[in-house]
Design a protein around this nucleic acid. Structure first.
Lengths: 519, 519
DNA sequence: GTGTAGGCTCGAAGCCGACAA
DNA sequence: TTGTCGGCTTCGAGCCTACAC
């Protein structure tokens, strides 16, 4: 992924995360999973037992050619992994079922034919290839689990990412929450430094970039439609027109004619990407033929490239040309350690300051719970997930704060103006200490206003990035729900799933240790 | 639409809107337009001239059958409206071009054949039917404008709405802005009444409902997938479990087996609807055949019903069944008067109170601009759009407020604690008046916090509803951009478009008066 | 004159063996 | 043993006429 991220983002390597809950799903987009060691035993018997009843093959061009393809099963692999065929039939043939990481079952026709004879998967294969967007170079894995189920996994070869990984979304949400905490803290009347203010601005800015990475780009220049990937946002001319939105979005175009086009577009030229559903879905390839008759394909013409370098040119003279839409994509916010907070340009010390500030007691009367939290944090180390008791501690603290400020005011709600003034006289000494705080708060009105705007701006990006994921939106709005998290043992939540990442075509089965990496 | 709205929403009939800008586009979703009288003259010559060179036909089953259809043109209509065919050719044939309300051109083959002979549209027709999601009972209109262009419009028959009309989105955004103003006002330290607070809560709640109306519902109960329409949100058992989210969403299922399923689902079971692109697009019907071979269609089996009562049952035993995704839909926030603020349950007096409160000066030093605004409003009447000068006036006021509170604090930023205390002594009298305000603000921390949460919650709904519409998102974040609105004459912005709604198959051409209805 | 049914055609999807590495 | 090529089959999209009302 490193190559996908604009390198002007100077980023720290780690972001502290709070693990609230774990459900072991594969990434809907990439079919990848982590935390594998936790569920490995449940899936494959004893932890270090090396499975032998599996095979993994890197797909050839023929395996994926033109969708009208079959899958050529390596002979030895078929004999080892697939159920024996009835060779009295001519040709020997069977139906083969396999489950992917999402629990979806895929049905293939397994046939032994040709001259010389070979094992092939025919019917059902092209649907699978389309749904998983497999191309030559990607890998598939067939493996039996202890429950006598044939499991099926995929691994894509490295190629340009067009979709924001869940991990980025997840981190974006985390940072957004921090941002909101800051906002709440400001509302409480505390000051924050210019540096911190700039940091928030910068954060919002970067969130927009991250959001942009998940976007499909359309440029309306020349009345055309193109696809590409957003690689960054920045001033076209930071000297003459700083902070202008004009052509502030840097784009890498997908197709070969990219050289003829602007590498920068304006935000209003962008059309968000709607990505793939997590369930087997109509392939974008299939949509090709739906182009109205008589209109030429303006793409290179090779179907092989279509998935990853689509070019849809919509000439106004030929407006019948259809736009391509991939359908809604149910992105899940499941954590993936592939990317870290460094994406967000968050300085660790700044992060600490923000986290502390967010929970700091405005009246300084209570022992800052966040400090306790940090002390514990220092003991167990950064890479260790937070205990849920700590999480509860924080939310409890927040709750107490709110209750305190409530009861503080509820004591004299029916006071008349005169009484109020007497009260004020009595409490003058202590309260006038708060006056300056109040002034500070007044001063922050502008900043608050800007923060709200920024937060919403960032949120709009996140929302569109996580369109079809109610879970993600729930994660964004956790304040009222923070207290609902129960004291769950992480490992008890892990269900039985397939650890695909550890399996390579040739390498032996390897275990990568027990540590739960969350960064 | 009235039947679509849950009737427990007790709603006022009008919401005051501020008309910032008008560009005459048809609704991307419904192809409908309003404000027709403004552009009628430009399009069709003199305002009251009744056009004769048009025809309108209600589509038959054959016209839309199985997509492999042609359009049977009424003989007289073809002779009256279409260009004369060259009858020396065998069969007589021509290419026919027509522009829809979006400016897209559609190409059809117009042929005269059959026994007995008849006028037909063949090639190109099915693409049009698919793109516009036409079914038997819908209407199409062909009409010539003064520029010698053949225009093409559609009108859907009444059938279940699955997509939120732009007008609702537009109103939601307006109310959301009000909500944000309230939030900003709270940040400024002003109190607001319990009634107002409850109103905000209620507002946020209703925004969620409105957002929900645009959603496609999926219930995961029984590991299946269904489609339906959200009709409301409310407690399953308001006595025993008030405010529980469990099965709080009421659903009307699309298919005939609805009786077997729960009429209520939980929010986390819902998958948002991704609707149609505004450009000609692959028809959902086309996707049918991509269902994996061997898996039965669990829908009734009649393709005719597929568009409007899709049922996708995804049994875990047959997980290959594909989910249907309609692709991203570019919804535009163009105003449509069809729906009014009554949807939002906003009491007119409450609205007034909110609007006033939002702009009220915290220090009572400035003449509340909003009052001026309201006075003007009372003069010109509710149905009249606001002048942009008024709009500017408001944003100017907001800006002044912010600047004032800034300069107020910038006067003594470097004061030392002792100096501060002296200052405090001197200003004690005046400042202690603010102390109580400060207390109030403390009291409002909880409410602020809740408001932020609510606002974001509402915003998440809006964002997902307006996914692909950068315009809508821009509208949501207008604070910093409010001043950019220029003093534009509404009518000068109107471009030449087709007033479809006034045309019925049999009724004569009618003009519906000149008033610009915005409510 | 117009709606509907069903046949025909054409091209794409996808199954197959030949052949070569 | 297995990757690739091109032929062949199947099937659906869509054009057409026949026939009924």
């Amino acid at each position: 992924m490193e190559s996908q991220i604009p390198n002007y983002l100077n980023l720290p390597p780690q972001l502290i995360c709070q693990l609230h809950n774990v459900t072991m799903h594969a990434d809907a987009e990439t079919d990848e999973q982590e935390l594998k060691d936790l569920y490995l035993p449940a899936e494959l018997g004893s932890a270090n037992k090396q499975p032998t009843n599996y095979f993994c093959k890197t797909l050839t061009a023929s395996d994926t050619r033109n969708i009208s393809c079959g899958f050529s099963v390596p002979c030895r692999a078929a004999r080892k992994v697939f159920l024996p065929l009835d060779f009295t039939q001519q040709p020997p043939c069977q139906e083969l079922m396999a489950k992917d990481l999402h629990g979806n079952e895929w049905k293939f026709r397994h046939i032994f034919r040709g001259q010389p004879k070979r094992h092939l998967l025919t019917t059902g294969w092209s649907v699978f290839v389309s749904a998983k967007r497999l191309v030559a170079g990607d890998s598939v894995l067939f493996i039996w689990n202890d429950n006598n189920q044939l499991l099926l996994g995929i691994r894509w070869a490295n190629r340009p990412q067009t979709v924001m990984p869940s991990s980025v979304l997840c981190i974006c949400i985390s940072v957004f929450l921090l941002q909101l905490l800051m906002l709440l803290r400001q509302i409480a009347g505390l000051q924050f430094s210019t540096t911190q203010g700039q940091a928030l601005q910068s954060l919002s800015y970067r969130l927009q970039i991250i959001g942009g990475i998940s976007s499909l780009t359309r440029s309306n220049t020349f009345n055309s439609r193109y696809m590409g990937t957003i690689t960054g946002i920045g001033d076209l001319d930071s000297v003459r027109w700083p902070n202008s939105h004009w052509r502030s979005v840097k784009v890498v175009w997908d197709d070969s004619t990219a050289g003829e086009r602007q590498p920068r577009v304006s935000q209003w030229e962008i059309e968000p990407l709607t990505t793939f559903p997590m369930y087997p879905s109509p392939s974008p390839l299939r949509l090709k033929r739906l182009r109205p008759t008589g209109l030429p394909s303006l793409h290179g013409g090779k179907d092989d490239d279509l998935v990853h370098s689509l070019l849809w040119l919509r000439d106004t003279a030929n407006p019948g040309l259809q736009s391509l839409n991939f359908g809604g994509f149910g992105m899940n916010p499941w954590m993936q350690p592939r990317l870290d907070a460094s994406l967000l340009g968050l300085q660790p010390d700044l992060y600490q300051a923000m986290a502390t500030a967010a929970f700091q007691d405005p009246t300084k009367q209570a022992l800052p719970t966040m400090l306790q939290f940090q002390q514990q944090q220092n003991i167990v180390g950064r890479a260790t997930p937070l205990l849920s008791s700590q999480i509860r501690g924080q939310s409890e603290f927040l709750k107490q704060q709110i209750q305190r400020s409530q009861s503080f005011n509820e004591q004299k709600p029916q006071l008349q103006p005169q009484q109020q003034q007497q009260e004020s006289q009595q409490q003058q000494q202590s309260q006038c200490l708060q006056v300056h705080q109040h002034q500070q708060m007044q001063q922050q009105n502008m900043t608050n206003y800007q923060s709200v705007s920024n937060a919403l701006s960032a949120f709009s990006q996140l929302s569109s990035a996580s369109q079809s994921s109610p879970m993600a939106l729930q994660t964004i709005l956790p304040f009222s729900q923070a207290q609902r998290f129960t004291d769950t043992n992480v490992s008890s939540l892990c269900s039985s799933r397939l650890p695909l990442d550890s399996i390579t075509e040739d390498a032996p089965w390897t275990s990568r240790g027990k540590s739960l990496r969350l960064v």
